[in-house]
């Protein structure tokens, strides 16, 4: 068989494999539905095919074939909006919603991973075409390994100290240490808080982290992840037990209160520490002169 065939075949194979490996069916249980996995694997296969044919087409002086890459961009934007629409539609059935920022982050990730698949397939087929299958597959697998490392992103544990906190009521006002959380009107509700609630304090390491934790979407993502991993003591008609994260506006520290089904503080801290830092929440005041000057 010709080296064009092997270039395209190896590009498609390595690209599709890369999409499978990038699909993290992790603790957040997404995408764990079998049909969502099939959807994304199929789209990954298409992305890999588009990437794999580009270089053999160019070599054959079929320059119009490259316009297919533009088609890919449209296709992947569609993936993003499909994911966003689905997650927004499901939001109302969550006891603790993900929040718009988290959804946008997930949708953007799905789009970006298809581009990565396209580039991996392009690289694999290009190297196979000019250097042979063995080197092509080695290049492809190395690219997959590098990409898997790069897409990791930061977690809350990288930007803040996460520790257990104390909570108390001052009359009807609930505080986590010095952070006011909310006004809890009913005595019976306060009693349930005293029996079941857990408090967590997040202390940002620097001004960048302080601004990330100030983002309301980031805080909602923390509440969602903690509630989905440890379970939440609430139902649709008990809104007063919604987990809340509030900010000390003097220091930027965050106080969190939650009523988990599993009352294990260490597991709760683990859950909070591993929440991803959302791309939309990232702020870097320390990268600017004004930010550094204000930080001291």
């Amino acid at each position: 068989m010709s080296n064009v065939f092997w270039a395209i075949a190896s590009g498609i194979a390595v690209g599709t494999l890369a999409r499978y490996l990038m699909m993290r069916r992790d603790v957040r249980q997404y995408p764990s539905y079998p049909h969502a996995v099939v959807n994304h694997l199929s789209l990954g296969f298409l992305a890999a095919t588009l990437g794999a044919v580009a270089i053999p087409a160019l070599a054959a002086e079929e320059y119009t074939a490259v316009t297919f890459l533009a088609l890919a961009a449209t296709q992947f934007r569609e993936v993003r909006s499909m994911e966003r629409q689905m997650l927004v539609a499901l939001e109302t059935s969550k006891l603790v919603p993900r929040g718009k920022d988290f959804i946008e982050g997930i949708a953007r990730t799905f789009e970006a991973r298809n581009y990565l698949v396209l580039f991996i397939a392009l690289l694999t087929s290009g190297v196979t075409f000019w250097q042979g299958s063995l080197l092509g597959i080695i290049a492809g697998i190395s690219a997959v390994a590098i990409v898997r490392k790069l897409i990791g992103g930061k977690a809350i544990k990288d930007i803040a100290k996460v520790r257990a906190g104390e909570f108390r009521f001052e009359k009807f006002n609930l505080f986590v240490e010095d952070i006011h959380i909310m006004n809890v009107g009913l005595e019976r509700t306060r009693k349930i808080y005293e029996e079941r609630a857990k408090a967590v304090v997040l202390e940002p390491f620097n001004d960048n982290a302080r601004e990330i934790l100030a983002n309301v979407g980031q805080r909602q993502a923390i509440a969602h992840d903690a509630a989905s991993l440890l379970g939440i003591y609430r139902d649709v008609d008990t809104a007063e037990f919604t987990p809340l994260l509030r900010r000390n506006i003097d220091t930027g520290r965050i106080g969190m209160i939650i009523l988990p089904m599993e009352p294990d503080t260490e597991c709760l801290l683990q859950a909070v520490r591993h929440v991803p830092v959302l791309e939309s929440a990232v702020a870097k005041p320390l990268a600017s002169r004004a930010g550094r000057c204000a930080a001291d």
Binding site: K171, F172, M182, V184, G185, L186, V236, A239, E240
Partner: peptide
Amino acid sequence: SRVLEGVVHDMG
């Protein structure tokens, strides 16, 4: 609060 899916606050 159960019927309206709201939260009860004490005005003091």
